[in-house]
Amino acid sequence: MTRSTQIGRPSGAAADFAEARLAAEAAGAVQQRQAARRVAERSHDAQDCRDLLLMLGLSDLEPTAARPAQTESAVMTFSEALGLHRTT
């Protein structure tokens, strides 16, 4: 059992472990997004992209930001259609 400085707040090694785990999960999410972006950039078409993302286990990624409003004349790349926008 861990000691708590406040109710529900672990201290010491437990807090350090929790912080390290959160940092590792965040880093993993960044790597998954980078991999999905690379697949989207190199795919031949939308179906190819979906198939590759599914094979790699990257098909269930949540979008990072709200998608911009679509217009009929808007042309999107595969990565934009998947919510994988390149930051500049």
Rank of each mutant, 00 (worst) to 15 (best):
M1W: 04
T2H: 10
R3F: 06
S4Q: 13
T5C: 10
Q6Y: 12
I7P: 00
I7K: 12
I7C: 05
I7D: 12
G8F: 11
G8H: 07
G8C: 10
R9K: 15
P10W: 07
P10M: 06
S11W: 02
G12A: 04
G12Q: 07
G12H: 08
G12T: 06
A13F: 09
A14N: 11
A14G: 04
A14F: 06
A15H: 09
A15W: 05
D16Y: 07
D16L: 13
D16E: 14
D16Q: 13
F17A: 14
F17P: 00
F17H: 09
A18D: 11
E19T: 10
E19Q: 14
E19N: 13
A20P: 00
R21T: 10
R21I: 02
R21D: 08
L22G: 00
L22P: 00
L22M: 09
L22C: 02
A23W: 04
A23G: 00
A24Y: 07
A24L: 13
E25N: 05
E25H: 10
E25W: 02
A26I: 07
A27V: 05
G28M: 11
G28H: 07
A29P: 00
V30K: 15
V30N: 06
V30P: 00
Q31I: 05
Q31L: 13
Q31W: 02
Q31M: 09
Q32L: 10
Q32F: 01
Q32H: 11
R33W: 03
Q34F: 04
A35L: 04
A35V: 00
R37A: 06
R37L: 14
R38Y: 03
R38S: 08
V39F: 01
V39Y: 01
V39S: 02
E41Q: 07
E41S: 01
E41F: 01
E41K: 02
R42L: 12
S43V: 02
H44K: 10
A46G: 04
A46S: 11
Q47A: 15
D48P: 01
C49W: 03
C49R: 01
R50C: 08
R50I: 09
R50W: 08
R50K: 14
R50S: 11
D51K: 06
L52I: 05
L53C: 04
L53P: 00
L54P: 00
L54A: 15
M55I: 05
L56N: 05
G57S: 08
L58V: 02
S59M: 07
S59Q: 15
D60T: 09
L61K: 10
E62P: 05
P63R: 15
P63K: 13
T64N: 06
T64W: 06
T64Q: 15
A65G: 03
A66L: 14
A66F: 10
R67T: 12
R67A: 15
P68Y: 03
A69M: 13
A69F: 08
A69D: 10
Q70G: 05
Q70M: 12
T71W: 09
E72A: 14
S73E: 15
S73R: 13
A74T: 15
M76T: 13
M76P: 00
M76A: 10
T77M: 04
T77C: 04
T77R: 12
S79Y: 02
E80V: 01
A81F: 04
A81D: 11
L82H: 09
L82A: 11
L84V: 02
H85A: 09
H85E: 13
T87P: 01
T87D: 10
T87Y: 03
T87S: 12
T88D: 13
